[in-house]
Every structure is written in C-alpha cells, then in structure tokens.
Computed example of a mutant assay.
Amino acid sequence: MPDVGGITADHLRSYIERIERLEEEKATLSADIREVYAEAKGTGFDSKIMRQIIRLRKMEAADREEQEQLLDLYKAALGMVESPPDQDL
C-alpha cells in the first residue's frame, strides 16, 4: 500500500484493526462483569456496595486510610456522627 501524506496505510490499518478487536473484547468483558453483578444481586448482595469495595481494594492502603479519615472528619463536621474521629491527619 502506498504512503499517503507520509502515512503508511497498512501500518495505520493494523493499529485501527487492533483497537477495534480490543474494543470488542472490552464490550464482552463489560457484559460479563454486569452478569456477575446481576448474579450477586440475585443472591442478595448490594451491587453498589460491591463496586465501592472493588474501588477501595484498588487503592493503596495509605490512600484508602486518608480518604476514610477525611470522610469521617467531614461527617463529624456536618453532624452526621455522634463523636468526632481522631484528628491526626
């Protein structure tokens, strides 16, 4: 295939086709994940809470602790908890 404006068409087509295949795989995986959440919900688990747990598990422990401390601090400031948390940030 000839170059057009300095771009090799075959090389470009190769990238585009790889991306398209990956997008198809991503769609399949997303559907599989939705099915697992639906299955868990069907057995009584809360999918929103499960998503939060998964997000928290991806975080570093120190980042997770800091986020939890800030959340507790903000809740205390808004009167959403009875006693303020330790404020050793």
Results as ranks from 00 to 15, higher is better:
M1D: 09
P2S: 12
D3P: 02
D3M: 14
D3H: 08
V4C: 01
G5P: 03
G5F: 13
G6P: 04
G6A: 03
I7W: 07
I7V: 10
R13S: 11
R13T: 12
I16T: 11
I16G: 13
E17F: 07
R18I: 03
I19S: 03
I19P: 02
E20Y: 11
R21K: 05
E23P: 00
E23N: 05
A31K: 01
D32R: 05
D32W: 03
D32V: 01
D32P: 01
I33R: 11
I33Y: 11
R34Y: 09
R34G: 07
E35K: 14
E35R: 04
Y37R: 00
A38W: 00
A38D: 10
A38Y: 01
A38L: 02
E39P: 04
E39H: 15
E39R: 13
A40Y: 13
K41Q: 14
G42V: 03
G42I: 03
T43A: 08
F45L: 06
D46G: 04
S47D: 15
S47N: 07
S47P: 06
M50Y: 15
R51C: 10
I53R: 10
L56R: 14
R57A: 11
K58W: 12
K58F: 05
M59W: 10
M59A: 12
A61Y: 13
A62G: 06
A62I: 14
E65T: 12
E65P: 14
E65G: 15
E66H: 08
Q67N: 05
E68A: 15
Q69E: 09
Q69A: 14
L71M: 08
D72E: 05
Y74F: 10
Y74I: 07
A76P: 11
A77R: 01
A77I: 01
A77P: 01
L78G: 10
G79P: 02
M80T: 03
M80C: 04
V81D: 07
V81Q: 07
V81P: 12
E82K: 05
E82T: 07
E82C: 02
D86W: 00
